[in-house]
Design a protein around this nucleic acid. Structure first.
Lengths: 199, 199
DNA sequence: AAGTGCGCTTGACAGTGTCAAGGAAAACGG
DNA sequence: CCGTTTTCCTTGACACTGTCAAGCGCACTT
């Protein structure tokens, strides 16, 4: 009944918290959202079922920490993809959108956790707030060249974010391509190409 | 709004199924996603905790049925709003998008259930499939005038759907307005105004 | 009137998160 | 080097979840 995976080393002092987060990420990637459980995390990290409560305040706290880690990786992925291409506004924006979608596709359960966290009202969630803000900053920076004078930056940012996030979530739940052949990410981005540049 | 869901005494033969669905909708509206439970539905409908299993195949089946009801109301709401305004392509599209957002805002838990149903692999879900297709048809019809010759209809449909769905979900989880002042739905729709009409 | 099904109830089971209480062991102070 | 304190974790219980097997009751059939 015990799962095959066990962490062999007795956890050194500080890193049980880290171990629990990693266990959560593993479970999420392997078994999906339903497979992520406080008790399974504890078992995978090699501790008793109530141990997580001492490092996070209950399940919400653990999910918060996992989501924060997710946002961190998310921001890294977008930054990397943006830096890989030409340093031109439209290319950067499209690179970030592609990275956004790829991340969601490659980490569906984690992505779902990140953008679902209705709980997170629990802890102040400082770590989560910071990681989320960093990811948002990447998107905001790429949107900046399209902000027309006299308009709030939040408008373009929200347009871009809504578009790519909607596409990602709809794809993840399998909604797209049910009634029509799937429109690709490039098809999607063609709408953004209509955005005028602020020269 | 229908209706009384209080079945005080032994329910007549056919309508326990209906009563359970209504109980589910009530719980969803009152207590949110976490408040929707097989046992609470059964209790609210006045039957024993295992009764639902005979009308739906377990929890997934009940959620399927509730989501189907949600899609039906969703399609109704969009159609009503579209018919209320002028019969002009841009006005219709914007009316539908506004109705889309209003529905999500007014029925957050139900909306979440509808667009989350990862389960629904259970039953073939014919009822759900139909109701979902009807809602999609409303959106597709409003998008049709913007389909340029030589392009697949699915492209514009996906653009519109992704944009409004992304905005709705981001708003629901409270992501928007954290880093910048909130961009309104109208701000969002200004992006769609860039879509050329197919005259 | 007896037989036959269907609709629902009852009771149990393995899970889940959470909490109170206790123990082991490291850190500390003398 | 010993006693105390503090920190971290374990143990055990609780209420709650969905699911399943068995069985009761009542309507309908013959």
């Amino acid at each position: 009944m015990t799962t095959s995976l066990e962490i062999t080393h007795p956890p050194a002092h500080g890193d049980l918290r880290e171990g629990l987060i990693n266990a959560g990420l593993t479970l999420l990637a392997r078994d999906g959202t339903a497979g992520l459980t406080l008790r399974k995390c504890a078992a995978l990290a090699g501790v008793s079922h109530a141990a997580p409560a001492h490092h996070f305040q209950g399940l919400p706290g653990l999910l918060d920490a996992i989501a924060a880690r997710g946002y961190s990786r998310f921001a890294d992925a977008m930054e990397a993809q943006a830096s890989a291409g030409p340093n031109e506004p439209r290319a950067r924006l499209e690179a970030i959108c592609l990275a956004y979608f790829d991340f969601a596709r490659d980490n569906p359960a984690l992505y779902d956790l990140m953008f679902r966290q209705i709980w997170s009202l629990a802890g102040s969630g400082e770590e989560l707030r910071l990681a989320g803000a960093r990811a948002y900053a990447v998107l905001a920076e790429a949107s900046a060249p399209f902000v027309l004078p006299g308009t709030a930056p939040g408008v373009v940012e929200t347009q871009v974010w809504s578009l790519i996030h909607g596409y990602a979530t709809l794809t993840l739940v399998g909604k797209l391509g049910r009634n029509r052949p799937i429109a690709s990410v490039e098809d999607l981005l063609s709408l953004l190409r209509r955005l005028p540049l602020n020269l």
